[in-house]
Nucleic acid binder design. Structure first.
Lengths: 254, 254
DNA sequence: TAGTGGTCTAGACCACCTC
DNA sequence: AGGTGGTCTAGACCACTAC
């Protein structure tokens, strides 16, 4: 039996203390130098142990203020009800969903004409590099960066609509298009997870050790795809749900 | 302007070389000592830079063999078609789905009577800590650990069925129960991502810097929940999809 | 055996935050 | 000012892998 490396002992000990409630969410860990004494280790070794916990998403380091045990308050997005045009909405789906649970939405918005990235182009079934309309949102919840959403539209759809024009579409683009005869009759959702790119980490203010959840919805008209929406969530703050079939036995649970 | 820290320069330079194809997936990075020379840095500093790339999921370190650029070959699981009893199946959903794309499934299986964990108990609407049946799978794809699946059943359902007995149920449990009058009329899916626990990292042989994708499906009968399935995927190797509505415009795409 | 990454030490100086 | 984490050095020895 080889003994565990010292830095793992540090990580394991602290992880156990977090798990059993000795160090509740929001509390501070002892300082690195204090942990050096406790474990009789060099500072680099203690830092390696703390790094494990950061990578596991358990603690957040703050320069000059110590390490804090992370608290988890997640937002649940119901992907089945989102964009369901038969449900009552005030404004777009995001605003509706967030207000429904009594939290405060805010979004920064922009519209661009861009060459379609390969993933969007293939999903929209147009040539890659061809231009398309990008409607981009950086979304906040109670002032905290929460997710980014990029929706790509093919050029043929931009003509004769306000899609390519700057400015929010108050009723939501899905409804706006539906009212103009471009109806979304079905969609294809893809979900994946990975570590954030440096750009995503910056936009969403993601610390190290937190993955992103990427939700790609391709919306279809009766004869061709009409849009491709890529939503990137902070993995530590979000959960996505789908409802299928008869859930009357479920009651009104969240 | 403060210059970037040296270890970030190391990470950025290597990340760029990976992105532009200079270092293709499967290739080896120069050794730590070689990178020390190239960047005129101490070994610890180079290791900090490499650590960034590990955390981003871009490279995998192997003791004694160097760092390898990770290659991504993902498996796509269609959660809408999975368990759809109207589709032809040979055996359970997992086996069917994997064979459909010409890959080799393998699973290690066990059945236990356990106190229900809180998340499962609340979803099954029984008291926490009460006993339930756990059917657990560790699943491989082409010999690589791919996902774990834990399905919890309430005790009332175990009586008079083979659910609580060890051994695989060849036709799949969903069909087995349906054939015995316990029909799943709807389900509620939840998706989240996080970093793996040490146990998950061991079972799935997940390296540092790779998140897991957790898919929880609660199946409902006409009057109450009948099971809760928690599937934990390696985030680097899996993607989940959902289909809703009329997708005839989509054709037979994968 | 030689080269690789894994672990670890004992310092140093800097940048940030709180008081 | 004093404590915190952030960065960095220059070594050391061990464990694993390849040849």
């Amino acid at each position: 039996m080889s003994p565990k490396p010292l830095y793992r002992q540090v990580a394991d000990a602290l992880r156990a203390e977090i798990a059993d409630g000795t160090r509740p969410p929001g509390s501070k860990l002892p300082s690195e130098r204090a942990l050096c004494e406790r474990f009789d280790a060099a500072r680099n070794t203690v830092r390696m142990g703390l790094n494990v916990l950061i990578t596991e998403g358990l603690v957040i380091p703050s320069h000059g203020r110590g390490y804090e045990v992370r608290s988890a308050e997640v937002f649940v997005l119901n992907a089945s009800r989102s964009e369901n045009l038969t449900l009552p909405q005030e404004g777009d789906s995001y605003t509706t969903d967030v207000k429904r649970v009594g939290r405060e939405p805010h979004q920064e918005f922009r519209v661009e004409l861009v060459p379609l990235p390969p993933e969007a182009a293939s999903r929209l079934r147009v040539e890659s590099e061809q231009d398309g309309v990008l409607r981009f949102c950086l979304r906040y919840l109670d002032g905290v960066p929460w997710s980014t959403q990029a929706t790509y539209y093919p050029m043929w759809l931009a003509e004769g609509t306000r899609i390519a024009q700057a400015g929010d579409i108050a009723e939501g683009t899905t409804r706006y298009l539906a009212d103009r005869g471009i109806e979304q009759v079905g969609y294809y959702d893809e979900l994946l997870t990975r570590m954030p790119t440096p750009e995503e980490a910056r936009d969403l203010q993601i610390g190290p050790g937190v993955p992103v959840l990427v939700w790609t919805r391709t919306g279809y008209g009766s004869d061709r795809p009409i849009r491709c929406t890529v939503t990137t969530f902070r993995g530590d703050l979000n959960r996505i749900t789908f409802e299928v079939g008869d859930l009357s036995a479920r009651g009104g649970q969240p």
